[in-house]
Computed example of a mutant assay.
Amino acid sequence: MIQLLGVPFDANSSFLRGPAYAPQRIRWMETEGSANSFSEDGHEFIPGKNYRDVGDLSFESTDPQAAFQLIKSQAKSLIQGGDKLIALGGDHSVSYPLIDAHAEKYSGLNILHFDAHADLYENFDQNLYSHASPFARLMETGRINSLTQVGIRTLNLHQREQAKRYGVHVIQMKDLTDSFLQTLQAPLYLSLDLDVLDPAYAPGVSHHEPGGMSTRQLIDLIQKIPFEIIGADLVEYNPKRDLNDVTAMVAYKLLKELMAKMMRD
């Protein structure tokens, strides 16, 4: 069974707030959008049969340590019996406790990270828990076997140094092919920031970074992953910047494709 969890937390956003509203808006597309409940490979998603929506976490504080403790605790609880978890953020900082929970369960965890940004800052704006820093926090734990970042188009000197320091495999958007898929290892967790897409396809994100993937490119890459995904998150959708729910529909489509990749045939 796949567990679907909303993580409406955006207190670590460095530019705009809004991703906290994302989980509910994405869910609405199941009934208010124009799509059906099937993935492209023919999986139908039926609540209670192959997935269970456990609702949204409720945060009493914006303190990141308290929030992350709650996120990690809930994630560990949901996956301890063998179920898989897909989380709807939220800003990208929530990926740190989500993935850390998986790293404690799955020895030698590998991460595939789709994003315009590397999110490897050691300390962004004096916030160790910034949404620009989750992968630095994860790599410094020593529990991550490999991190592959795809679609990056904002590397600066510091992040290049961080990638080298932690042995990160970075595929910049300008160099993108699908050959990286053959280097991936299991167990694999997938973290998907919607701004990996060009803003033409996903205007509802806080950081518009032109030159990104098309929706079709991203779906094709997800479908070509050569094995199951053991956990995933979809983050950084900002409904406050969306146009006619275009990005919400993209997020719902990607959610179905991620769930299909996580299901056992």
Rank of each mutant, 00 (worst) to 15 (best):
Q3L: 02
L5W: 03
V7Q: 03
S13P: 05
Y21K: 15
A22Q: 11
R27S: 03
E32R: 14
S34E: 12
F38A: 13
H43C: 05
I46S: 03
Y51K: 04
R52C: 10
V54F: 05
P64Y: 13
L70F: 02
L78Y: 08
I79P: 00
G82E: 03
G82Q: 03
D83Y: 05
D83K: 09
D83G: 01
I86W: 09
G89W: 11
D91K: 11
I99H: 02
D100M: 09
E104V: 04
K105Q: 14
S107D: 12
G108H: 14
A116G: 15
A118L: 15
D119I: 01
L120T: 08
E122I: 01
N123V: 04
Q126A: 14
Y129D: 06
P134N: 10
L138R: 11
M139T: 08
G142E: 10
I144F: 08
L147K: 07
L147R: 09
Q149T: 10
T154L: 11
R160N: 14
R160K: 15
K164I: 09
Y166N: 13
I171S: 02
K174C: 02
L176K: 08
T177D: 14
S179T: 12
Q182L: 01
L184C: 06
Q185V: 00
P187Y: 02
S191K: 13
S191Y: 12
D193T: 06
D195M: 11
D198V: 06
V205Q: 03
H208G: 00
M213W: 15
S214L: 10
T215M: 06
L218Q: 08
D220M: 07
D220A: 11
Q223N: 15
I230D: 01
A232Q: 04
L234K: 07
V235P: 05
E236Q: 13
Y237M: 11
K240M: 13
K240A: 15
K240Y: 14
R241K: 13
D245S: 13
D245H: 13
A260W: 01
M263G: 02
D265Q: 13
